[in-house]
């Protein structure tokens, strides 16, 4: 069994202001999706969601800018850890991630461990 990180990327905020009912739906779809991975005994760690407001980026030369590090208006807003037989299964597990509904992306990265240096 290999270990993978799922990294959630999304683009800088659009005008999306969800209603409480929509927020509830978003919450439910996240717990259902993560619960589904856990039900397959594939969840290692729920990981953390990463805040955007109040973040800063430090660059060489102690240059501090406001906000998260972004590339082409895209930033990382969370990470979680799963296990899977191989990368294909990891991709299958990532499918259904609610991130994808909001135009975000999920990056699937193998963890570098003592038996995996790739």
């Amino acid at each position: 069994m290999k270990e993978f990180a799922l990294i959630f990327r999304t683009s800088t905020d659009n005008e999306f202001k969800p209603s409480p009912a929509q927020m509830q739906d978003i919450l439910t779809s996240w717990t259902n999706w993560m619960g589904g991975i856990a039900a397959k005994n594939r969840l290692i760690d729920k990981g953390t969601r990463l805040g955007i407001a109040g973040s800063k980026t430090l660059a060489p030369g102690n240059v501090v800018t406001d906000g998260p590090y972004t590339e082409i208006k895209e930033f990382i807003n969370g990470v979680m850890y799963i296990r899977a037989e191989n990368i294909d299964e990891a991709v299958e597990l990532a499918k259904g991630c609610p991130m994808l509904n909001g135009g975000g992306k999920v990056e699937i990265r193998p963890l570098v461990t003592s038996d995996n240096f790739s």
Partner: peptide, 10 residues
Amino acid sequence: ILRLYNQLLM
């Protein structure tokens, strides 16, 4: 109940 089972499994 579903929400709680999701949490329990996590």
